[in-house]
């Protein structure tokens, strides 16, 4: 084996070169997804039935009052787009953490009942306890953690297949709880039902955005901090223990993902399938490798673009975003099952 200066055959150089290619691929992917997200964001904010020009956009942000446009932008278009990004990041990264650490593409928080646990708890807090704002977020977190722990205890610590089965059952039970609570609600508001069963970005208020942003500023760096353990846990619990990453790390990572899911649900409801599709889509774009950043970006794109389609696809009708993500997510789930990839290693 040559060790001359020109020789790229030194083993260390072979290793360096081989490490570079997937990293470069990932960097391109992150840039590409960021551009796509920016495009979707701009479209959501400026386009639609009422088009806002770029100069007007900055004038309004600067405090100018343009009749119609200012109200539409500041109380509808902009908050919806921003919340879409935040919720998408929360759902996308939470889904990828679940799927990769449990090594099963079906084990995403919206499939295994975590989202609906948060939703049921939030509806209980609204209908029975009359809570709102931060207290509502906390109620959603409590519900999500309770369901996650219950599912984990019933399913046992090993075997993500059992976890999926138990989780799907729990999700159905939580849907029933939400329905029951609505029958007891004083005002049976259709929009409320859509929000807490399907997920929607309609009627977002700025305080909701600030609350979610505040939590994400803490949780996303925490997730980044533990990202390397997540990579090790993908190798399975035995290899991970051998490399010094204990099972407790799995629980910590899943807890972070449960928190992200619960906060997203508290802000926008259990938007169907965003957590579930973000992981596999980002992985397919990343040469089959799991990427948390990619999943977060895909989640955000799905939310923002989905909300745009929901709002304008059918003239005169504005769907909640969950209807659109559900409509696209369901065939995707079927495809995943038909292709035999679900239940296999993730």
């Amino acid at each position: 084996m040559s060790t001359t200066l020109s020789g790229p055959t030194r083993p260390v150089d072979v290793v360096r070169r081989a490490r570079r290619a997937p990293r470069r691929h990932h960097a391109y992917l992150v840039v590409g997804l960021s551009v796509a997200l920016f495009g979707a964001f701009v479209a959501r904010v400026l386009l639609g039935n009422f088009i806002i020009t770029v100069p007007d956009f900055f004038r309004i942000l600067g405090g100018a009052e343009i009749p119609g446009a200012t109200f539409l932008l500041m109380s509808e278009k902009l908050p919806r787009a921003i919340l879409g990004v935040l919720v998408g990041v929360a759902f996308g990264s939470a889904g990828a953490v679940f799927q990769s650490t449990l090594r099963n593409p079906l084990a995403s928080p919206d499939i295994v009942g975590v989202s609906l646990g948060a939703s049921a708890s939030a509806v209980f807090a609204i209908v029975v306890l009359d809570l709102q704002g931060l207290a509502l977020s906390i109620a959603a977190i409590v519900g999500a953690i309770a369901i996650a722990v219950a599912v984990r205890l019933v399913a046992g610590s090993d075997g993500s297949y059992r976890l999926v089965l138990v989780g799907v059952t729990a999700a159905a039970a939580m849907t029933a709880v939400v329905h029951y609570l609505f029958t007891r609600a004083n005002e049976f508001d259709a929009l409320l039902v859509l929000r807490w069963l399907t997920g929607a970005l309609n009627g977002v208020t700025w305080p909701t955005i600030w609350t979610l942003l505040g939590f994400l500023v803490v949780l996303v760096p925490a997730l980044a901090w533990t990202a390397r353990s997540a990579q090790i846990l993908q190798l399975g619990p035995d290899v991970a223990t051998g490399l010094g990453v204990s099972r407790r790390r799995t629980d910590l990572l899943l807890l972070l993902a449960v928190l992200l899911t619960a906060l997203g649900v508290a802000a926008a409801g259990p938007v169907a399938f965003v957590a579930f599709v973000a992981g596999p889509i980002s992985r397919a774009l990343n040469g089959g490798r799991t990427t948390l950043v990619g999943a977060a970006l895909v989640g955000a794109i799905v939310m923002v673009a989905g909300d745009y389609i929901a709002d304008y696809a059918v003239p005169g009708v504005s769907f909640p975003v969950g209807v659109v993500t559900g409509a696209f997510g369901a065939p995707f789930l079927l495809w995943l099952l038909a292709a035999g990839r679900a239940g296999r290693k993730a």
Partner: peptide, 17 residues
């Protein structure tokens, strides 16, 4: 160090990784 019985590699992972 430990090599457990029939470990499963994550999808798409390269040898160096």
């Amino acid at each position: 160090g430990l090599m457990p019985q029939s470990p499963v590699a994550p999808e798409g992972i390269t040898v160096v990784d």
